[in-house]
């Protein structure tokens, strides 16, 4: 049973990633708009160059760019299912609905991570911050933060599939829910970017907090995806 679930999950994720691998449409547009967000912040904040605030600003920009471009990824990965009513075929197939959710989650997660690597490099250049002081923790916080965002995002993006005002609504509905995760992620990131931080105790605290929210969000997502997306 679990082996079956895993197989179906990988099937759905693999399908999305294969389509993406052929056109690279989402990846390129996301990476470009993420770079633009970082640049916009860098222009807007260029005069506020208080070095003590540097790590906080860099972490904030990193996560703001992730969140804003993540919404683009969510929109596009599920839009593909709307074209030609592919979603109906997917829902009619014998794949369990929770496996569809998990597959979409993995696809969005990997796409966002790929873009985040570029964003991290860009932030380190433009905000001259010690970004790679703790590479292990950075990787962990990026993964946990992105996972929490994608876990909620897939549910709402799928539910909004047939709505006309979807692009306007997705952010409005999603952001209040994911802000706790964003807050934890950017606090942890700011602490590990700060060369003057006395210890990494806050990082550990926020990572644990992130882990807990991720568990709750994914459990809710797996549980709610079917009734929300497939009802009547």
């Amino acid at each position: 049973m679990t082996g079956n679930f895993l197989r179906h999950t990988l099937l759905v994720a693999g399908k999305d990633l294969r389509i993406e691998g052929r056109s690279r449409e989402v990846l390129y547009t996301m990476a470009f708009s993420a770079a633009l967000v970082v640049l916009v912040f860098s222009f807007a904040l260029s005069n506020a160059a208080d070095p003590a605030q540097g790590p906080i600003v860099a972490a904030g920009v990193l996560w703001a760019a992730t969140l804003l471009t993540g919404t683009v990824a969510l929109g596009r990965v599920l839009d593909r299912e709307r074209e030609n009513e592919a979603i109906r075929a997917l829902l009619l197939s014998p794949v369990p609905r929770s496996a569809i959710y998990a597959g979409k989650l993995i696809a969005v997660f990997l796409l966002m991570l790929a873009v985040e690597v570029a964003v991290v490099v860009l932030v380190s250049v433009l905000f001259s911050t010690e970004v790679f002081a703790h590479p292990g923790y950075l990787a962990l916080v990026l993964m946990l933060g992105t996972l929490g965002f994608a876990a909620t995002g897939v549910v709402f993006s799928a539910a909004l599939l047939r709505s006309r005002s979807r692009d306007a609504l997705l952010g409005a509905l999603l952001f209040p829910i994911v802000i706790p995760a964003l807050l934890a992620a950017s606090r942890a990131t700011a602490c590990m970017f700060d060369p003057l931080a006395p210890d990494l105790q806050p990082v550990l605290f926020w990572l644990r907090f992130l882990f807990a929210t991720d568990v709750v969000y994914i459990a809710l997502g797996l549980w709610l995806f079917e009734p929300v997306v497939c009802g009547d």
Binding site: V155, F156, A159, L160, L161, R162, S163, R164, S165, R166, A168, L169, L173, I177, L220, L224, P227, V228, V229, G231
Partner: peptide, 15 residues
């Protein structure tokens, strides 16, 4: 403004 799935969407939001 949630379109056809508005009520189920909102329910998920409440949860």
């Amino acid at each position: 403004y949630g379109g056809p799935a508005a009520r189920r969407l909102a329910a998920a939001l409440a949860l």
